[in-house]
Simulated assay, not measured.
Amino acid sequence: MRPTHICLAVLVAAIWGVNFVVIEIGLDHFPPLLFSALRFLVAALPAVFFVGRPKVAWKWLIGVGLSLGVAKFGLLFIGMDAGMPAGLSSLVLQVQAVFTALIAFAVLGEVPTRIRVVGMAVALTGIGVAAVDEGASGPLTAFGLTVAAAAAWGVSNVLTRKAAPPDALNFMVWVSTVPVLPLLALSLLFEGPSRDLDALGSLDWQGVAAVVCVAWVATVFGFGTWGYLLRRYPASTVAPFTLLVPVFGMSSSALFLGEPVSGLQLCAAALLVGGVALTSFARPPKPPAYAAPLTPAASKEPATPV
């Protein structure tokens, strides 16, 4: 990769890592489901009028919008609002690579190699260590919600692979239009109109900045830049930079939010990142000689983090 593009990849990983701090700030101003709805509303508008028509079928946009926007981010925001630390959230979400491999095996028939199985076992061991540490200091329910968010992310990864969008920015902007109404409806149902109106009525510059940051910086700029890099380089070259996300997430949470990093968390981080690396970047098994080769779109690994 050119040095400029390496810097761009590191910048996106840093943005996605620090984004967990911004989410924590936003949750001080909004109920979690409302905050998630506002994120996608601002990400979709006005960008949807400038990216052109959707380049994949609506069934994929709706599927990814519900699994990524409603399930993944809804569960993540609720979990963080319930007490899941921002830094630990950035780490635990990386287990999405394991869920992606398992779902791809169940749905697409992609048999994992031995080294990927080892990687999944190592990553799940890291999740277990993180759960032990969180159980000693925080609510396990919030931890479980974050793991569930990672599973939902795995579903959206597999759907994205099936969709094979030719333009990542166009795809992400149109996907962002899907979760807005479901999230608003869920917020009104579970968080209540009065709580939502109070949050909107007391809106200040920090709340606005949090929404704009997670929508335009982390979503539109982040995914747009990531898609640009994936169009220029193989996914196996770009994807390893995603392992920097929890590094930036945990360090920025410790720096800006004062979150402590325990020895068990460092052990969990080493296991989880190492396991995800094995799971994500091991070479796929060679197809039989009589098998038709995969198309470039079908053979790419999903490589889009937060």
Rank of each mutant, 00 (worst) to 15 (best):
L197S: 06
V64I: 14
G249F: 08
V155N: 08
D28H: 14
L272Q: 10
L181P: 12
N157L: 12
H5I: 06
P166E: 04
T295A: 08
F20R: 06
H5D: 14
P287S: 12
S202R: 10
F50K: 10
L255V: 08
E134D: 07
W205R: 15
A254R: 05
G126A: 12
R283A: 11
W226T: 11
I103V: 13
G249I: 13
L188R: 04
G192T: 02
A270L: 15
G274V: 10
D204V: 12
L91G: 09
V111P: 00
F221Y: 06
F143M: 11
C7P: 00
T237F: 05
F248L: 08
F77K: 02
V107E: 06
T225H: 01
A151F: 15
S89F: 05
L108K: 06
P31K: 04
R231G: 10
V129E: 14
S36R: 03
G275R: 02
V18K: 03
S262W: 11
A106V: 13
G79H: 01
I15V: 14
L145V: 06
V107K: 07
T146G: 04
P85I: 04
V158E: 10
L38E: 07
V214D: 04
L68W: 14
A303H: 00
P165A: 06
L140Q: 01
R161A: 05
L145S: 02
I62Y: 04
F77T: 06
T160Y: 08
L278I: 11
G249M: 11
A37P: 01
P288D: 14
F105A: 12
D133R: 02
E110M: 02
V92I: 15
V180S: 06
F20N: 08
P165L: 02
V64S: 11
Y228Q: 04
T100G: 10
V18M: 06
P287K: 15
P193L: 01
S251A: 15
T242Q: 15
R116S: 03
L33A: 03
A185C: 05
S89K: 08
F50Y: 13
G138S: 13
V247R: 12
I6Q: 03
V208F: 09
W205K: 06
A277Q: 05
L272K: 00
P305K: 13
P246S: 08
G222P: 08
A136D: 11
